[in-house]
């Protein structure tokens, strides 16, 4: 499998679709690649338009204290990326430069800043919405789009360390949230089928860390809290999750004090689109030259 991944990556680099940056999972994007991502983003917005979601955009970094409160380190310590900076004096600066010159580890005196790289587009949303107070009767629906970071260097071009996630997040009663997820399970499948790719929906789990993670993963699967829309990119047997549909129950509601209009703990759910993964799936299915993609697919994306 890793051979197929390396070959696909090589092809993408040779065609200038992605640009090597010297680190596995970190790539520059060509205009052609960006155009596909942009067109797909517009398509997603068209599918979600009638729901009138509130658009909210956050930078790809979030508050460290909110990150700490989110519990992310309990579940995914291996994936988190914290931002550290130099905060010493002249002497310490000179020592740092000397270490760098000698190719020694110069990073040990770097200090954690108040910023952590966003692990999922919706993470900064919950505390921001909780601050507004109780939700209106119809609950809340939000449209998010952000670069995210996950520390998992890999040859697989579909497993980038920095990638974009577009999300719709529903916050409200259990009924509102479950119905939202059901709607998007159906929409998501229809959306991807319109792009001429082979899709399969499956129950999934997050990559929770350690033995406790084993238990959380099994719980998540038993309760069917996470579904993924899988599309083969570098392997037919292990297709790649391009969309995910997550029901968090009252996990974030309890954590952040999100309340429905009658003061009950709010439930939350989200649908997430892995923008780079979708674009890669399209290049894999339809070829490296977007001008020769099937007419039906070009019509859906470019309207021509």
């Amino acid at each position: 499998m890793s051979n197929a991944q390396a070959e696909f990556l090589k092809l993408l680099l040779e065609h200038g679709i992605l640009i090597d940056m010297g680190v596995d999972g970190l790539y520059g994007r060509s205009g052609v690649f960006e155009d596909v991502v942009e067109r797909f983003s517009i398509l997603v917005a068209a599918f979600g338009k009638e729901d009138k979601a509130e658009v909210v955009r956050f930078p790809p970094g979030m508050s460290r204290s909110q990150f700490e409160s989110s519990g992310y380190m309990k579940s995914f310590p291996q994936l988190a990326g914290t931002i550290h900076s130099f905060s010493g004096n002249d002497r310490e600066h000179a020592a740092l430069l000397a270490k760098m010159e000698a190719k020694e580890d110069w990073t040990e005196d770097q200090k954690a800043t108040d910023v952590v790289l966003t692990p999922a587009a919706c993470y900064p949303l919950y505390p921001a919405i909780a601050k507004r107070g109780a939700l209106p009767e119809q609950g809340g629906l939000f449209d998010l789009y952000s670069y995210c970071f996950r520390h998992e260097p890999a040859i697989d071009p579909a497993r980038m360390q920095m990638f974009r996630m577009r999300e719709y997040v529903r916050i409200g009663t259990q009924e509102q949230v479950v119905s939202f997820r059901q709607t998007w399970l159906e929409r998501g499948e229809a959306l991807m089928k319109s792009l001429g790719v082979q899709v399969a929906l499956d129950v999934a789990n997050d990559p929770f860390f350690g033995r406790a993670g084993k238990l959380l993963s099994n719980n998540q699967r038993d309760q069917k809290l996470k579904f993924e829309l899988l599309i083969p990119i570098t392997s037919e047997e292990n297709p790649t999750a391009c969309l995910s549909f997550n029901y968090h129950q009252d996990h974030f509601g309890t954590k952040w004090g999100l309340c429905t209009c009658d003061n009950a703990v709010a439930h939350t759910a989200c649908v997430g689109f892995g923008m780079e993964r979708v674009a890669l799936a399209l290049f894999k299915h339809h070829g490296m030259d977007v001008r020769s993609w099937p007419r039906a697919v070009r019509k859906v994306l470019w309207g021509e």
Binding site: G71, K74, R211, L215, L216, H251
Partner: peptide, 22 residues
Amino acid sequence: SSFSTVQLMLALEEEFNIEIPD
């Protein structure tokens, strides 16, 4: 809750000096 189950699992392992198999 799921997260309390994790705490419970760790506490049971300590109380009974066992490791619950995966």
